[in-house]
Simulated assay, not measured.
Amino acid sequence: MDFSLSVEQQMVRDSARDYLAAHSDSAAVRRVTEAGPAHDDALWRAISGELGWCGIALPEAVGGVGLGATGLVLLQEQLGQRLACVPFWSSACLVAPWLQASLGERGSAQWLERLAVGECRGAAVLPDDGGWHYDGVAIAAQASADGFVLRGGAVQVPDAFGADWLLVPARLDDGAPALFLLEPVALADDERFRLAPLDTLDRTRPLASLRLDGLHVCASACLARGDAAALGLAHAWWHGKLMLAAEQLGAAQQCLDLSVAYAAERIQFGRAIASFQAVKHRCAQMMVLVEAARSAVYGAAQAWESTDMADARLEIAAAAVAADDALRFCAQEAIQLHGGVGFTWEYDPQLYFKRAQAASHWLGGAGAALAYIAANGPHSWRTA
């Protein structure tokens, strides 16, 4: 498979890298998170509105750029490298594809147009079991005279605070899946709707718990039901899995870059520790894992656009495992190669180590990906 990037794609990658280096450096990330999990509102307004990143993968008909999954992967990689405190993954990588798949091109246009220009942002409630199906959905929707009554909740919802839209999967009375769109701002004073912030290890991505205690919503809040709703959840989950892997890839690359830079300036026994064979070997191993993950992620992005969904899911699962392994290894190696100060607050490796630990559990982590490969791969193990 040809992984070469077009001139346009290289420009997207390079401009994103330069912009985030200037506006989401370590000092900026620390300013945002020092009081707790939070978003960088100024950065979000810039990348979503002025730069138009939220529309990079969306079709031109809704105000997007039309660069597809590969363009979005390139942005996610750079955002992950800087641990940018913005809800890009939730809004552009989960909500947008969920609406596209559930409502179709024409039905989703009114929503995607607002997402593409940064006018609104969304958050997605995903099954608590980390799966891509409705088996783990813990929200029930009971039909009423003029709408639905929602009961249940979710343990963790990324980027829920400040979101204009909250996509909520639920089960109807007959067990059929359904997709609801809630507006948190309009429901803020309703006691039956509760979003509670969570104090998390990784403060660069805020999480919240959701509780719906008999919340009444109008019939129009149900955007899709049946096969359309199920298709949308699966589409969003796998797309989100791919983009999470791209984010982990970027974070792993930064761990390598930080380690190489520190090794070049740290003097021990009269010379830089970068000259020691053992340090070179450890940095080389980090690079091998990063490059392997990059090949897997870029290949999965192309597979998402050019092959059938079954093959694309296998590619994404493999990329998810490679990226998770790369980030966890590189984060711990970065701490070790920084010596006694590697784990301290003043140095950045601890930020990436926390992201590595947190991201390893999102969307089922590497375990869900490996289970999918084992069950669906070309040499899968099946029980009679």
Results as ranks from 00 to 15, higher is better:
Arg31Glu: 05
Val32Arg: 01
Arg31Lys: 04
Ala38Met: 07
Ser6Phe: 10
Ser48Gln: 00
Glu34Val: 14
Arg31Pro: 00
Glu34Leu: 12
Ser48Trp: 00
Gly49Val: 11
Gln9Tyr: 10
Ser24Ala: 15
Val29Phe: 13
Ile47His: 04
Arg17Asn: 10
Ala27Glu: 11
Val29Gly: 10
Cys54Met: 11
Val12Glu: 01
Glu34Gln: 10
Leu5Trp: 09
Ser6Ile: 09
Cys54Thr: 10
Gly55Asn: 03
Asp14Pro: 01
Gly49Ile: 11
Ala35Cys: 06
Trp44Phe: 11
Ser6Val: 03
Ala35Met: 14
Val7Leu: 05
Cys54Gln: 05
Val32Gln: 03
Ala22Arg: 14
Ile47Thr: 10
Arg45Ser: 05
Asp14Asn: 13
Ser26Cys: 03
Ala27Gln: 04
Gln10Asn: 13
Ala22Val: 00
Trp44Ser: 03
Tyr19Trp: 15
Ala46Pro: 05
Ile47Met: 07
Leu43Asn: 10
Ala16Met: 05
Ala22Lys: 09
Arg30Asn: 06
Asp40Ile: 08
Asp14Cys: 04
Ile56Gln: 09
Ala21Glu: 13
Leu5Tyr: 04
Leu51Asn: 07
Val29Arg: 15
Asp41Tyr: 14
Ala35Asn: 07
Gly49Gln: 15
Gly36Gln: 06
Ala28Ile: 02
Gly55Arg: 05
Trp44Gly: 02
Ser15Gln: 15
Ser6Asp: 05
Ala38Asp: 14
Glu50Asp: 15
